[in-house]
Amino acid sequence: MIPVKVEEKLFQNRYRVDSGRPHINIKNPATCQSECKTQECTICCPAGCYTAEGNGQVVLITDGCLECGTCRIICTTYRNVDWEYPRGGYGILFKFG
């Protein structure tokens, strides 16, 4: 496996972060922590927005989000992701796309 930090990739991107207003929220954090055994969001998010903590907690930081929709669709068992588009003008701003 090639070690690579997704942060180094995201660093090249342009964002306008809507501070304090994340467009994605985990509906019920306790579900991720105590019920979800697979936590695919922590592996499959292409921007690495979801982190699995040692205590089973899932922490979501949407600043680097690429707005693809993966986390919402992949959470099939618990449908625990509340996913909206960012407010107009905010979020990822692709320079090339």
């Binding site: 496996m1 090639i2 690579v4 997704v6 990739k9 697979t38 695919e40 592996i43 499959c44 292409p46 690495g48 993966t70 669709i73 992949i74 099939t76």
Partner: peptide, 21 residues
């Protein structure tokens, strides 16, 4: 396919990195 990513638990950017290598 997203179902394959989900089932096989593969991280997309690592997949891309391996392909580039």
């Amino acid at each position: 396919m997203l179902s394959d990513f989900k089932q096989q638990k593969i991280t997309p950017y690592l997949l891309l990195e391996q392909m580039k290598a």
